[in-house]
Amino acid sequence: MSDKSSDAYWKANIRIITISLVIWALVSFGFGIVLRPLLSGIPIGGTDLGFWFAQQGSILTFIVLIFYYTWYMNRLDREYGVDEQ
């Protein structure tokens, strides 16, 4: 693999990692803690959406994030010819 495509592969990886980590922080530190007051208007089962994110939603989002990243990277690996044969 040439250096150029190697750089492009790594850049694409960093990009998807950054996007994923922004979502990761948003659902836990954001919706679950800091932004909870903003979500207090959205009731869910006797409490508010922030509480749900802190005790359920963040965990479920984490799972989706990891599987999406796995799927995305497998595609990227093949695209750049760096997958494991």
């Binding site: 190697s6 990886n13 690996d77 750049y80 760096v82 494991e84 044969q85």
Partner: peptide, 8 residues
């Protein structure tokens, strides 16, 4: 280590 190929 940044690319998967060759880990087998």
């Amino acid at each position: 280590i940044r690319v998967p190929r060759g880990a087998g």
